[in-house]
């Protein structure tokens, strides 16, 4: 009886894991098998000469280049907006806030972290309506609004990684600075933040990945299928994840579908790359830590 239970347990745990790996493998494998042939210069640049496209001299019509540039602009803008606020908030939470204020703030950031991205998108959309009615009829959903909404989406990630990195610093390291006459601010900037830079950096990479892959937010705040390279932050833009979504529903011919597969592979590789580096940084960090102890 016991032996059967023992066997059953192992069948269950190995079976579950293999099922999960197989499912994930199928998703990735399917994408690669169907889309790998389409990966190449034309996928990104279409018929346009590469150099001319990169120098923005000639527009790219049948390639992913504008969507990739759009995603890049989106990531830079939104992480640029969220980073200062997120870092400062994480530092405040870990180094200054105490007691009730600490619990209250972390509750708020937990709620923000749990917010569905479509709600954040709807928030961005309502801001647009508000600005449109209140300030200028010329304000429509645009790159800026999308970036702002994405910044809201990744803000809790940045806050949490900063906070967790700082709070993980052991007490003996924390006391060196003050014992040498460092003010709290000096201790934060000369000792604590440099020490947790790697984990903060890995948090930033995860935030970038999140910005690059999210579709729901930008759908509501200004992404379009065809806009070319974004000319200003007040205009529409293209982005990889939205292109993938659009193609899945509206593809006209086999060529477009191939481009859809290509876009999905590129996005997948981009995210895998970012996550890979982030986890590698964290691993190296914990290993170094174990060596020290």
């Amino acid at each position: 009886m016991m032996r059967h239970a023992f066997k059953l347990f192992h069948v269950w745990v190995w079976g579950s894991t293999l099922l999960l790996l197989a499912a994930t493998g199928t998703v990735i494998g399917f994408l690669l098998v169907r889309g790998w042939a389409g990966i190449g210069r034309e996928l990104v640049f279409g018929e346009t000469p590469v150099l001319a496209a990169l120098m923005l001299q000639r527009p790219v019509f049948d390639g992913l280049f504008p969507a990739m540039v759009g995603t890049l602009a989106l990531v830079l803008l939104s992480v640029g907006m969220a980073l200062p606020v997120g870092l400062a908030t994480g530092i405040y939470l870990a180094e200054y806030a105490t007691g009730r204020l600490y619990s209250l703030l972390s509750l708020f950031f937990d709620i923000l972290a749990g917010m569905p991205s479509i709600v954040v998108g709807l928030f961005g959309f309502s801001i647009t309506i508000f600005l449109h009615h209140r300030f200028s009829g010329k304000i429509y959903p645009c790159l800026f609004i999308s970036a702002l909404s994405l910044a809201v989406l990744v803000l809790p990630y940045l806050i949490r990684t900063t906070q967790a990195a700082l709070e993980a610093i052991p007490a003996d390291l924390r006391l060196i600075g003050p014992s040498l006459g460092a003010t709290r601010f000096q201790n934060i900037f000369h000792v604590l933040v440099p020490h947790s830079l790697k984990s903060i950096l890995s948090g930033i990479l995860l935030a970038i990945g999140r910005c690059a892959e999210d579709t729901a937010v930008i759908m509501l705040t200004g992404v379009v299928v065809s806009a070319g390279i974004p000319k200003s932050i007040w205009g529409n833009f293209e982005a990889l994840p939205f292109y993938i979504y659009y193609i899945s529903a509206q593809y006209a011919d086999a060529d477009e579908l191939t481009r859809g597969y290509g876009a999905a592979i590129i996005l997948l590789l981009l995210c895998a790359f970012l996550f890979g580096i982030a986890f590698w940084l964290q691993r190296r960090l914990s290993q170094r830590w174990f060596e020290r102890v």
Partner: peptide, 20 residues
Amino acid sequence: DLTWLRRRVAMVFQSPNPLP
């Protein structure tokens, strides 16, 4: 001021703790 005090009253810890 705490900073003023600690610049006059220094401390060395149990295990060597140079900064990186």
